[in-house]
Write a protein that binds this DNA or RNA. Sequence first.
DNA 1: TTGCTTGTTGGCTATATTGCCAAATAGCAA
DNA 2: TTGCTATTTGGCAATATAGCCAACAAGCAA
Lengths: 110, 110
Amino acid sequence: MYSKRKKHLEARAKVLKALAHPSRLFIIEELEKAERCVCELTEMIGADVSTVSKHLSVLRQAGLVVDDKRGNQVFYRLRMHCILNFFGCVESVLEAQLREQTALLEKVHS
Amino acid sequence: MYSKRKKHLEARAKVLKALAHPSRLFIIEELEKAERCVCELTEMIGADVSTVSKHLSVLRQAGLVVDDKRGNQVFYRLRMHCILNFFGCVESVLEAQLREQTALLEKVHS
DNA sequence: TTGCTTGTTGGCTATATTGCCAAATAGCAA
DNA sequence: TTGCTATTTGGCAATATAGCCAACAAGCAA
């Protein structure tokens, strides 16, 4: 594997890794609708504030969100609005998985 | 977070996690061009066969590739050809990161 | 100032991932 | 059969990730 290609793949992998967590996907989806402060996201996710703050830090470091301190709150918003469209393909993978499971179940029951 | 939404996000996260590794991204890109046997991919990646085999297993379990045993070789191919397009957005994130770093460097040197 | 709220960071433990080697499995050919 | 090749699986050690609590920082209000 050429070194340049390897570095590129590593960079891509980092972005995907940042996305590869249910809470972080939730955050992305919510920020698609509107900017949110940490306290709102914490409330919605139902985890410790520190946990949510760390998830946001992961997303920020990956270049996916930006933060905006206002008063004693910190608001986050999406930096890349394409991120959401981009799940169309992931969805088709999930649908295919579902079809497969259904087919398997029908086979078992027949 | 509603349980149904949570499950959906967990399923998405699993697919993204399967993609979030340089070697596995390499495999996806190669399989976009043509099907490949494990030995070819191993040669290209330059890791142990067992390591590559495990990466392929991760991709298969995520529903991203399918395997096809022929003789004593196993050929893999993409199951979802949309996966590649789907990187357009990841690329724009990387480009933005690059622009930012460049701006930072210019600031330092000025 | 003090006290309250909002976030971030450090430290910890539990868990997951990675990548190697070694062992097992399966096909093919002599 | 034996031997060779291709692949998968088990096991292990090193490393990374997740999520909690505690401590800290910063804004604001009394």
